[in-house]
């Protein structure tokens, strides 16, 4: 993060989906506040992880960055260029630099196209003719992602789930992007296959210096893959930090609760105490006032209901570790995944 201009700069990013209702004239009666004022940067070659539970807006964020959706508010700057409301023509050159890897390797590949056609698709659209022809490039890409280059004229159904995800990676790499948004790239895969794809993405990130926005709900995988991690709750970032800080020293109660809920494949002598969060995530149509987490937070007070906590470097945080909480967890608290010593928190 030594560079002055980040690759991607997002500020105040907001996306509200209107809800139409009423008769006979349908009008907007409300809005799903999917993403509500996000600020973050992604440096060149860096991997930023976005974690959170379903409905927290992490996928919407991914789609806004890739401009598959147009934001309602805020600003997205890519390499100094404002692309918040850029039109098709303006976006065209940028689209080739920001690519996406999707969750479902079965739904994201056209079953009627050969692998070669799928991977060379982006080159065709952008009219790129690499040296030696597109087929040669496809073979190279297949080799990079660990597939047999001779398989370029096979169809997706001839491949297993993990192999299909590799095809998805090859397609994303076809245009030599600078940024890849990976939306739950391994969650549809079997455990033994997940590691193969994670290692592949890591190799790609390191060797080709591609920046990643890695969206996932699996905290252990995000920790493994991303140098910096942002935790989202109900359309807002509640905490963002380098991975060591975030996992060792979570300051937001939600981050701590989330970490403590991750089941780990270890048998401790003493059963691990968990912070039980009561209830479900509230509806983003009518989010709680003030701090959005307060309805499930064991520390919430009057102040939390009236005043939304800003995302700042709270006292005791290392630089770059931002937390949006009025009552951040203190350093005396034992790091969450191991043990929580206050039984009150569990109630």
């Amino acid at each position: 993060m030594s560079n002055t201009t980040p690759l991607l700069d997002v500020s105040g990013l907001t996306k509200h989906f209107p809800i139409k209702g009423g008769f006979p004239i349908r009008r907007t009666v409300g809005a799903v506040q999917a993403v509500d004022g996000l600020d973050f940067q992604v440096a060149e070659g860096e991997s930023l992880g976005l974690v959170g539970e379903s409905g927290c807006g992490k996928s919407t964020t991914g789609r806004l960055i890739t401009r598959l959706m147009e934001p309602t508010g805020g600003k997205i700057t890519y390499r100094g260029q404002d692309i918040t409301h850029a039109g098709r023509k303006e976006l065209a050159p940028i689209r080739s630099e920001i690519q996406m890897i999707f969750q479902d390797p079965y739904a994201s590949l056209n079953p009627r196209q050969t692998v070669g056609k799928i991977i060379s698709g982006p080159m065709e659209i952008n009219d790129i003719n690499p040296e030696g022809g597109r087929e040669k490039r496809v073979r190279e890409l297949l080799e990079i992602v660990g597939l047999n280059p001779e398989h370029f004229n096979r169809f997706p159904h001839e491949f297993s789930g993990g192999q299909r995800q590799r095809i998805g990676v090859a397609r994303a790499l076809a245009l030599q992007p600078k940024l890849i948004v990976a939306d739950e790239p391994v969650s549809a895969l079997d455990v033994s296959i997940q590691a193969q794809v994670v290692n592949l993405l890591q190799k790609v990130q390191r060797e080709l210096g591609i920046a990643f926005v890695f969206i996932a709900h699996d905290l252990a995988i995000v920790r493994h893959f991303s140098q910096r991690v942002a935790v989202m709750y109900l359309g807002k970032i509640v905490e963002i930090a380098d991975r060591e800080d975030l996992y060792e020293n979570p300051r937001h109660p939600y981050t701590r609760a989330l970490l403590s809920a991750v089941p780990e494949a270890t048998v401790d002598e003493e059963p691990r105490e968990r912070i039980r969060l009561a209830g479900d995530v509230p509806s983003p149509i009518n989010p709680p006032s003030g701090c959005r987490f307060r309805t499930r937070c064991w520390k919430a007070t009057e102040k939390c209901a009236t005043e939304a906590p800003p995302l700042v470097q709270v006292e005791g945080n290392k630089p770059g570790h931002l937390t949006a909480c009025h009552y951040p967890e203190t350093t005396e608290t034992v790091p969450a995944p191991r043990l929580s010593k206050d039984p009150e928190a569990a109630a």
Binding site: V191, S192, A195, V198, N199, R223, H224, Y247, L259, P337
Partner: peptide, 17 residues
């Protein structure tokens, strides 16, 4: 071995099957 943990080393690549 193929599962990352919350406190393992992040520098060692995973060992997939």
């Amino acid at each position: 071995n193929s599962m990352p943990t919350l406190n393992g080393s992040v520098d060692v690549p995973l060992t997939p099957i």
